[in-house]
């Protein structure tokens, strides 16, 4: 799958090092699974992690500890030389299961709740930060906003455009607090996207403040 817009390299590096909160990694998983460019970045990050491990100072370890490990070796049968099959997917909330198969899933059947004219959403429970599915009617203009913190958006259906470009399904907008943008849903169909943020969005003028409940602020 050819993607035009990827997560920032800094985001990918942190993802590889388990340094992103769950709301972001849910979005990232969906993109990276389809994107060889990003898979390569993750693989590179791991090679860098390996070089870093090599460069770490050795922590002192007792001989008795090594003896304990050596004593266990005989009890362990070698695993076959081929990689184990993928572990069974863990139990996850239904909505996350739907998202995992977002290209096939019936997104219309989800419990969309109206939030503002032209905008519906589904909040998704995550331990940290915020994660929302947004469904934006064709031609709807979201308020100009900047971010206190990060905002990571992946389009699942339709498309939106902003100052950066036109985002189609699978593409990701990775924004931080330096960026102010005004996304507009393209005219042909509803735009459905998955949006992770860690802090409330800041709107620039008073009118869009009415929309703040939209983002559960």
């Amino acid at each position: 799958m050819n993607m035009l817009f990827h997560p920032d390299d800094a985001t990918l590096a942190s993802y590889a090092a388990c340094g992103v909160e769950r709301n972001y990694s849910i979005v990232l998983d969906l993109h990276i699974r389809e994107c060889r460019h990003c898979q390569q970045r993750i693989s590179d990050a791991d090679h860098i992690g390996g070089a870093l491990l090599q460069a770490l100072p050795a922590a002192p370890l007792g001989q008795e500890q090594k003896a304990a490990v050596m004593a266990l070796l005989d009890g362990i049968a070698p695993a076959p030389g081929v990689k184990a099959p993928a572990p069974a997917p863990e139990e996850m909330p239904k909505i996350l299961e739907v998202l995992r198969n977002w290209r096939q899933a019936d997104l219309d059947a989800l419990p969309w709740k109206p939030m503002a004219p032209g905008i519906r959403r589904i909040p998704i429970e995550v331990p940290q930060g915020r994660l929302n599915l947004l469904r934006i009617a064709p031609g709807t203009c979201l308020p100009v906003h900047s971010h206190q913190g990060n905002e990571l958006t992946m389009v699942l259906r339709g498309s939106f455009s902003d100052e950066i470009g036109r985002f189609t399904p699978g593409n990701v907008a990775d924004l931080d607090d330096d960026v102010e943008h005004q996304p507009i849903a393209d005219r042909d169909e509803d735009c459905i996207c998955l949006v992770a943020t860690d802090a409330p969005l800041r709107f620039r003028d008073w009118l869009p403040q009415l929309l703040q409940p939209l983002f559960r602020l």
């Binding site: 993802y15 590889a16 388990c18 340094g19 992103v20 909160e21 769950r22 990694s25 998983d29 990276i32 699974r33 060889r36 898979q39 993750i42 693989s43 990689k83 993928a86 572990p87 331990p127 940290q128």
Partner: peptide
């Protein structure tokens, strides 16, 4: 802390690497 390591599939892309 709920920060899973990169998806298991990634570790298995031997051919790819």
């Amino acid at each position: 802390r709920d920060r899973p390591p990169p998806d298991a599939w990634l570790q298995q892309e031997d051919e790819f690497e």
